[in-house]
Structures are given as structure tokens and as C-alpha cells.
Simulated scan of single mutants.
Amino acid sequence: MPPGEMAAVIRARRRHRPRRRAENIFATRITLFQLSEHKIIKRYRLSSHAILQLLEEIKEDIESLTQCSHSIPAVVKLLATLQILASGSFQTVIASAVGIWQSALSRVIAPALNTLLQCTSQYIHFPTTNDEITRIKQDFFNIGNFPNVIGTIDCIHIPTVPPSLQEHIYRNRKHTYSMNVQVVCDANMVITNVVAKFPVHDSFIFRNSAIYQRLGNQAFGETWLLGKHCLFYLFVWGRFTVHLTFPLDI
């Protein structure tokens, strides 16, 4: 057979040769039962009971619709999202820890975060009834005999990747980029208010928050809001509220 014909035969055989499909190798998915309670709290900043309770609330919203045997369970999506929020680590690291691919993790984070945000108002809200306000005042009074305190307030810088056209706004005094988040909590360290939408100074955030407006309108009577520098700015006559969003203002 001439060399030209032989080459044509070989090419034809290669085209029709059945190709073997590469076998997918799936990593072992993480479960809470693999970890001690100490490791669970350290990794996710929540207890196993709190995680399971949260899972029951959002499971229907984040569960995969497909019946594929290798679809990502809701618990893995939740654990991956909580670990990212708790550690701020890279997706590749978190994906390896929970047993999924990074590309899969990037697809499930946004839906899981949006679902969690819809639940924030159930857990983060400033007291509105007289009984709630009285209880908080009493709790603070029991700690330091200081009357009429309805919350403690402070801000914390959360590292972030700034918008390219506004990098200078997000640059803090340590020459890194961050979002300045204002948080209010009660005497039992339960967060009652969050403002996460400004990368600027603490005083600007406070004066532009809903809680400042409500306190200014004397919504809570004669009350104090304590900050790290003794009292936060002034003797607050019934003004208060918090905000949590992306940007968050709860």
C-alpha cells in the first residue's frame, strides 16, 4: 500500500476509534459528624446546634433541584459559605476543605449568601417594645450599675477588594483596603444592629445610620449608647437602630 494511502487509513481509524471518557473523581464531602464541637466553633464561628437550626430554615432555598447522585448537598453549601465568612480565605482552600471543586463553590456562594441575608431580620433587630428596652437597660445596669444603657457600639474594619475607580475611599490608615462595619450589641453580646455600607470614619457611619435618626427622634426615651471611648459622642436621648446589608443597614 502506498505511504499516502496508509496514512489516510491510519487517520480514519483514529477518527472512528471509541474514546474512553475520563472518570470523574469526587472528593469526600465534609459533614459535621467528622468534627468535634471545638473544631466546629473554631472553623464556622457557630455551634453545631446553631448550624443545624440554620440549615433547617434555608434548606429548601439552597437544596439542589437535580437528582444527580453527586449534586452538592445543602449542608455542604452552608458549611462552605460559613467558612468563607468566618475565615475570609480563598475559594480554592475552602473548596478543598469541604470536598467540592472551586468552580462549583463559586456557583453556590452567591445563592447561599442571598438566602442568609433574607434571614438577617429574624436575628438582628433592635428592641422596639418597652419590655425589651427595659430588660436591656436592666442587664447593663446589673453589669456596672450604669443606668439607661441600651447598647454598646463600635466599628471594625473588614478587608475587601475595592472598586477600581474608588480605591482611595476604601484605603484605611493601615494602608490596606477595608469596609468599616458598625455593630451594636446588648449586654449578652447579642448583635442588635449592623451598618455595613461605608468604608469611612466611625462618626460618619453613626451619623448616617438609621439608629442615629431614631435616637434623635427620641424613639427610646432617655438612653445611653456606650462606645469604646466611654460614651459615644453624647448623652443620647432615645435614638437607636442598626443596619446590615451589602450594603447592609439593619
Rank of each mutant, 00 (worst) to 15 (best):
C185W: 08
S87D: 04
R15S: 10
F235D: 14
Q67S: 14
C68S: 15
L248T: 07
L225Q: 03
I84L: 10
H201Y: 11
V194R: 08
T81R: 06
T245Q: 07
A187N: 04
S47A: 07
E57A: 11
Q122M: 11
S178E: 01
I41L: 10
Q213P: 03
K39H: 15
S209C: 11
Q118T: 07
V149W: 04
S71V: 07
L78M: 09
L65T: 02
F235T: 02
Q91H: 15
G216L: 08
S36F: 12
T176L: 15
F198E: 01
V75M: 07
L225V: 08
Q213R: 07
T31L: 05
Q91G: 09
E60T: 06
S103W: 13
S209G: 07
Y123G: 08
K137T: 02
I153P: 00
T160N: 13
D186R: 04
A97Q: 01
I211S: 04
P127G: 00
L244H: 03
L248E: 06
G99I: 05
L35F: 10
N208E: 09
I10P: 00
Q34Y: 11
Y44I: 06
I205M: 03
Y212E: 08
D186V: 00
E60C: 07
S96C: 00
S103L: 11
L244I: 02
L54W: 01
S106W: 12
R107Q: 09
N188R: 13
W224L: 07
L117T: 05
Y177Q: 08
V98D: 06
H125N: 13
N142P: 00
R207K: 13
I40S: 04
V242W: 06
F141Y: 12
S36E: 11
Y170Q: 08
N114G: 05
T152S: 14
F232W: 06
I153M: 05
A12C: 12
W101P: 01
T129S: 11
D249W: 05
A22N: 14
I136T: 01
P147F: 12
V194S: 02
N188E: 12
P2E: 02
S121M: 05
E132V: 01
T115N: 09
I40Q: 02
Q67G: 12
V108I: 13
N148H: 15
H175E: 15
S209V: 04
D249S: 08
F90R: 09
Q182F: 04
S89D: 13
K228G: 03
L231D: 10
N142E: 15
W101G: 12
I51T: 03
V75Y: 06
Y233R: 08
Q213G: 02
H175R: 15
M189Q: 06
N180P: 07
N130S: 14
P18T: 00
S209D: 06
A187P: 03
M179H: 04
Q34G: 07
T81W: 09
S69L: 12
A7L: 10
I211V: 00
I205C: 04
S121R: 09
L65K: 10
T120N: 04
F126K: 01
C185N: 00
V183K: 02
T66I: 03
T92H: 14
